[in-house]
Design a binder for these strands. Structure first.
Length: 465
RNA sequence: UCCUCCUUAGCUCAGUCGGUUAGAGCAUCUGACUGUUAAUCAGAGGGUCCCAGGUUCAAGUCCUGGAGGGGGAGCCA
């Protein structure tokens, strides 16, 4: 099979089969040389490193070599040789070259020198051709794979939560409407409101903000489950940590209390970071060299100690006693602001912190009430550089308490009857959390803007590509 | 959404007190060089100074409005 004879640059760079005939396909990063010899740096995306192709110029058609430009795609067949040069150990001595696609050097926007992240963000269709984005995409893949592997190895089942939902009970944020109604002339009710009975689903529908409620239903049947899918928030958030479309991992576990929840969150995060260190070292070293010289140290440091665990009330006490003059004054009952989280993680403890048992007023309706009647078993995991990476809780499993909370917050019972049913029939203690996939990738790659860790970022006023 | 900074060549940027023909490095093209490593050296081409108004004899430069982008904040994952 012709296709099987082609080889990945990743494998060739580790090979010592000198003298053997090989074929590689890839994109040209640079070409340099003179009338007699030319060197092509070729990359096929399998690994961050290029392979050097050595061309004995007089043996080749001049017009063909002119088409070998930065950005062009070529196929090279030749022999694998030990390199005489300094920068690499193996190289290919070209026997034949064919052009898949040329690239006009005047128009191709990527040059061999570096570009700013802001610039390559504007050419997201070509961004994967850069070293940086190639590294990020390979790490992103590795993390997605590791997440499935971790859960599979621990007896969890992967649940597919719906993306279109008729429930907006989760309250995690503003939602995008999903409709096929004519925006200029929607069918109206007698009182002038839109008649969604005529819409595609016969009711008002939205893009999901979370798969949690659905995951809970599954956990109360299969025990250990998780979702991993896209979620959507129509918030006008313009920050380097927010996207309108992002991916979230949401494990949900029957018979887990808040402490089991914390154990899982810590173990999983450490597993994923260890996986990256063990499987993505080339890409991590590149990112460290280019953007963040503390990256690998920081990843390793997270693995060493147990994450700090403290109650919200203790966190408030630490902040109050810190003597720091915060912009948002600290007192029991406030939601922790970025400056507070950063103080705890980066100044006080200097390692990841898990905070639990928050005032019920600042947390969602489904969180389990503590015996004190004023705090709930909520959990936030705070990481250096990125703040909240995980939010979770033990869920309220008592029907009467859950119903009371729903009524207190004026959530229409008819919207959540199915959720309430799980507390009516065979309820069980259970817990879960949501891990923002892109925030994990931010931490692992050391990138500083979330738009640089997802192929096609969706943010306010931007859905290009 | 709020605060703040930015927008000049393909890219990264300089541009003095408002002054006559808007510059540099890199990239690109041409040439030189028999093993280069973000090659080097020589030369050339390349501009809607973000957009719309305004002030002025004169605006890249000052003023007003708008758009886009960065950083910070809020909302959160």
């Amino acid at each position: 099979m012709e296709a099987l004879r082609r080889q990945r640059i990743k494998d060739l760079l580790l090979s010592d089969s000198f003298g053997s005939k090989v074929t590689v396909n890839g994109w040209v990063r640079t070409k340099r040389g003179n009338k007699n010899i030319a060197f092509i740096a070729l990359n096929d995306g399998s690994v961050i490193h290029n392979i050097q192709v050595v061309v004995n110029v007089p043996e080749f058609d001049e017009e063909l070599l002119k088409l070998v430009t930065t950005g062009s795609c070529i196929s090279v067949t030749g022999t694998l040789e030990q390199s005489q040069g300094q920068g690499q150990s193996v190289e290919i001595h070209a026997g034949s070259i064919s052009i898949y696609g040329s690239a006009d050097t005047e128009a191709y926007p990527l040059q061999k020198k570096g570009h700013t992240l802001e610039f390559i963000r504007e050419i997201a269709h070509l961004r994967p051709r850069t070293n940086t984005f190639g590294a990020v995409l390979r790490i992103r893949h590795a993390m997605a794979f590791a997440i499935h592997k971790y859960f599979n190895d621990h007896g969890f089942y992967y649940i597919h939560a719906p993306i279109i939902t008729g429930s907006d009970a989760e309250g995690a944020g503003e939602m995008f409407r999903v409709t096929v109604l004519d925006p200029l002339a929607p069918p109206l009710n007698e009182d002038g409101t839109i008649n969604y009975k005529e819409d595609f689903f016969g009711k008002e529908t939205k893009l999901t903000v979370s798969g949690q409620l659905e995951a809970e239903l599954a956990a109360l049947a299969l025990g250990l489950v998780y979702t991993f899918g896209p979620t959507f928030r129509a918030e006008n958030s313009n920050t380097p940590r927010h996207l309108a479309e992002f991916w979230m991992i949401e494990p949900e576990m029957a018979f887990y209390d808040i402490h089991d929840d914390m154990d899982l969150a810590e173990d999983m995060l450490k597993y994923l970071i260890r996986y990256a260190l063990e499987n993505c070292s080339d890409d991590l070293e590149f990112l460290q060299k280019m953007y963040d010289n503390e990256l690998i140290n920081r990843l390793n440091s997270v693995l060493v100690d147990h994450f700090i665990r403290l109650d919200y009330t203790e966190a408030i006490n630490i902040l109050s006693a810190s003597g720091t003059n915060f912009e948002f004054p600290v007192k029991w009952g406030i939601d922790l602001q970025s400056e507070h989280e950063r103080y705890l993680v980066e100044k006080h403890f200097k390692q990841p912190v898990m905070i639990s048992n928050y005032p019920k007023e600042i947390k969602a309706f489904y969180m389990k009430m503590n015996d004190d009647g004023r705090t709930v078993r909520a959990l936030d995991v705070l990481f250096p550089r990125i703040g909240e990476i995980i939010g979770g809780s033990q869920r309220e499993d008592n029907y009467d308490k859950l119903l009371a909370r729903i009524n207190e917050l004026n959530i229409p019972e008819k919207d959540v009857w199915w959720y309430l049913d799980t507390r009516k029939f065979g309820s069980a203690p259970h817990s879960g959390f949501g891990l923002g996939f892109e925030r994990l990738i931010l931490f692992v790659t050391g990138m500083s803007n979330i738009r640089d860790v997802i192929p096609f970022p969706r943010t306010p006023k931007n859905a290009e590509f």
